[in-house]
Amino acid sequence: MIPMLLGVSLLAFALLQLSPGDPLAAQRNNPQVPDELIRRIERQYGFDKPFPEQYALWLGNVFHGNLGYSFKYKRPVADVLWERLSATLLLALFSSGLAWLVAVPLGVWSALRRGEWIDKTVSVIAFVGMSLPSFFLALLLLYAATMMPELPLLGRLPIGGLTSADFDSMGWLHRVWDVFLHLLIPGTVLAVGALAGLQRIARGSMLEVLRQPYVIAARSRGLSEGAILWRHAFRNAANPLLTLLGFEFSALLSGAAFTEIITSWPGLGLVALEAVRAKDLFLVMATVLMGSLLLLLGNLLSDLLLAWNDPRVKLR
């Protein structure tokens, strides 16, 4: 894990060095900032040193918990990152929750009605959902949100951002609702992308379990189909799904970047793009590190869930 993080960060650092641009461009062009100050900043962050030294300096700082300063946002990187990370996590949680809530029951249902029209219909819809490019769906939804008359209950859906302008003056319940409304479009886009695959896997793994001898044995003992489904079939069919959960979560985090940018969701993806464009070195490095870390965490999460669901791996 550590070697991987080191490798990724080194690569990213090198790429940024090779690319044109200057993290202090804005400051240099600002006549208000004295040259003396700029030179001091350069010395402080090692911009005047050769590449290996710069990297070592950055790495040392990271190990001491100092992610550096964002020249674009004029705040410590850690602050910016934390804010954006929570937005991305929220989006990933919301969209995976949504995808799972829809896909798993649909998959189980298709498996139980295998070959019947409902199974075929769900398959077709899932396939269409899977083939729909996410940017297209995002644009479609954004367009619909601006053109549609006010929806009952939801009102007019916000088309970007995390909160409304008057967020600070809201009560907490109102705030939750406000964030929820903002989540709907990016969350749906991400969920639709993940849905089809999940549904196929839920269906397949359910079908596999339903023909297991222990399911037939349960039926022969007189259990109702509902009890067979919940007690024996579903719990065993959940394994491949749990493996996927962590993986899917990491995939959503990285896939989220694209959707975030289109729907202007202020998450890691959007901030990474902005940081790269501004050549905000330390912020870019922090988002890269964070992305890799989240991927690893997602895998760790799958492993933990698998262990939790496996009687052979009892955490006694």
Binding site: Q212, P213, I216, A217, S220, G222, R231, H232, N236, P311
Partner: peptide, 23 residues
């Protein structure tokens, strides 16, 4: 039929797959 099943029972061939691994 479900109620009647208690009068007729089944023992299966492969005792591993015949038992739910989670029970």
């Amino acid at each position: 039929l479900r109620a009647f099943r208690r009068h007729m029972q089944l023992v299966m061939q492969d005792p591993m797959s015949a038992l739910d691994p989670r029970c």
